[in-house]
Design a protein around this nucleic acid. Sequence first.
DNA 1: ACGAAGCGGATATGCTGTATCCGGTTTGAG
DNA 2: CTCAAACCGGATACAGCATATCCGCTTCGT
Lengths: 212, 212
Amino acid sequence: MGRQRGGAEPAAAGARPLRRDAELNRRRILQAGREVFAARGLQATLNDVAHHAGLGVGTVYRKYPDKQALAEAVFGEELDEIAAMAQEARAEDDAFAALAGFLERALARAAHNRGLRELMRHGIIEGAGPARARQEITLHCEHLLARARTQGALRDGVTEADIAPIAAMIDAVMALPAEHPSELWRRYLVILLDGLRAHPHQAPLPSLGGAD
Amino acid sequence: MGRQRGGAEPAAAGARPLRRDAELNRRRILQAGREVFAARGLQATLNDVAHHAGLGVGTVYRKYPDKQALAEAVFGEELDEIAAMAQEARAEDDAFAALAGFLERALARAAHNRGLRELMRHGIIEGAGPARARQEITLHCEHLLARARTQGALRDGVTEADIAPIAAMIDAVMALPAEHPSELWRRYLVILLDGLRAHPHQAPLPSLGGAD
DNA sequence: ACGAAGCGGATATGCTGTATCCGGTTTGAG
DNA sequence: CTCAAACCGGATACAGCATATCCGCTTCGT
């Protein structure tokens, strides 16, 4: 009945607003979560996050009952940002170039975010937020692909289902043992994108489906 | 005749030969190791292996003091087999086709061998045997690439250093969550190989090295 | 047939991540 | 300013897991 939304994020629907310090800490935790998951991947501990945030473990567990919950919040945000990139890309005229640019930007972000990469590979995080963002991204890609096809830039048989594998492959390159943080992945992204582009005398692509 | 070496593998240089049952068990363990590592990856336990071999844990630990030791033995064998494939490939006239064929065969094997794939990615296993086999494979690939280059079939700038990333990428596709054991990876291997082949009007490849 | 070699697997050990609990501290309304 | 509710901190209990050992019993082989 007398329900009111304080803001978009801060407090859940029917709840009383947090005390000022508590709210501040919530943010701190979220930020620490981003940083820690980015650096150490999803196997990082909530205790790690707490320490990184300069807070006690209890504080973190009070806000996020378990790692899953924090991860949902963190990656909900991060995926939303990537979804935004995808949306932006749709403004570009050349659809293929737009897709390529989007992939490059999104993957460049993933390059510095181990947690995000783990998420890309094994779709662990189950929450509603991340799921929605994922769908959004998928949708934007589908549109981009459709338009690229219309523009004659897309190789026959390429579909949205190719995007995830490509991301996974590039991630694999990023995960390769390397001394210096390397930009090597760009080399293979170029090759892969080349493979998606329409070319004069092109062999057909092996099927996607199970029945070959 | 007093003393003679039964075969190449069975016993180490100066040691007394194993009792017949012990030797049999050694083989059983090795075989079980292959199967278990293939199915469950390197995180499988020596206890798992023992159970799979139908033997007690103690028996396994007596032969192989720890997982590392067994893994070295197992993957020494497996990598040798792959090295043999690479050597065979060198007989073919068309060097690029030979390389492509080798990669396909080797990766097809990896497709059913999770442990091998994990090894491909993060070069964990340190032993001498695996290391030698690796080098052998590398060498064969280098020769194949050199010849393909001579034959004008190879894209400019492609080197042996591209092989490992490609393997890693294909592995990533194999590791993708899929209902049925999928042959999807072949699709991307085709694309990747296409990217390594020389083509008429080709953009230069982004550099491999750090200094770009 | 008998001593040596080998086997089995219950179990001790150590480690890691998870999550709780409660005495002390901070906030903010009155 | 006062005080109760809200909140914090982090030591610690707990649970699961892989590793590795130990020793009474079995099998081999001479």
